[in-house]
Amino acid sequence: MLLQQIMNGVTIGMTYALIAVGYSLVFGILRLVNFSHGSVYAFGANSILFLISLNIGIIPAILIGILLTGILGVLIDKTALEPLRKKSAEGITSLITTIGVSSVITNLLIARLGSQKKAFPALFPTGEIIVGSIKFTYTQIGMLVISLALLICLLLIVERTKIGLAMRASEQNITAAKLMGINVNFVISFTFFLGGMSAAIAGTLVSSYYNMAYPNMGYTAGLKAFAAAVLGGIGSLPGSLLGGLVVGISESFAATVLGSEFRDSMAFIILICVLIIRPNGFLGKKSIKKV
């Protein structure tokens, strides 16, 4: 029973980690909490559901949906955030802009698709493997494998490729990166693209796990993923994974031990405790404020 709860928590926690990556990468470079990320996640799941309903086959629909969501991420950056960077506006203006973007995306989805929950097809065959007392459904295994593979991919991109090097350089010092000839705006757009894509993949996995998708799904998932990103140390990819797992497991326990009402606020309770005790998260670097 205990192991089963951990297993369920890990499965859902991995998808939080995937969403958290988007927050983490963007925060690393821009020092901005991208509040629109939750709605990007919802857009991913809902657009894929919409594409599937067009009967173009499940795999092409998912691939196109993921690509579209990535492009949406770039679009958000280009239309709403880049002009603010050019003006070198205060941080709060960007923050409020992303809240606005989130409101626009979510409510356009509601207006076009309706706010009701719609059935999402299962992506993995039904069935389960029983190891000892734990039950692994194929869906859970599929989610775990895909999320883990994707996280490793992202880590490799950031650590091993040239664009990843540019991302890390921009993260350390955006002005110095510019002086070294890095096209910072491209790097930022690429970051948004990566974030959008991984959010769309997470959206697909979660929707098929719960068998439903709806426009408002991004709100709580986004907040929990953000909590996960902060927990693990925002700006750090392994931190996102750790944070996602902590949120997922604690949520799964809260739902069984305390009652399902506690599920959604568990992430915040942990988040607030961690922020007060260790504001930089588990794996975050300490930031020094220069006067």
């Binding site: 606005g100 409101s103 409510n107 356009l108």
Partner: peptide, 20 residues
């Protein structure tokens, strides 16, 4: 009514962009 919160969002974005 359907687009009410879309308008709120747009107001936030446009205000931040042009008249913070």
């Amino acid at each position: 009514t359907d687009y009410r919160f879309v308008i709120y969002g747009l107001i936030l974005i446009l205000m931040m962009r042009f008249r913070p």
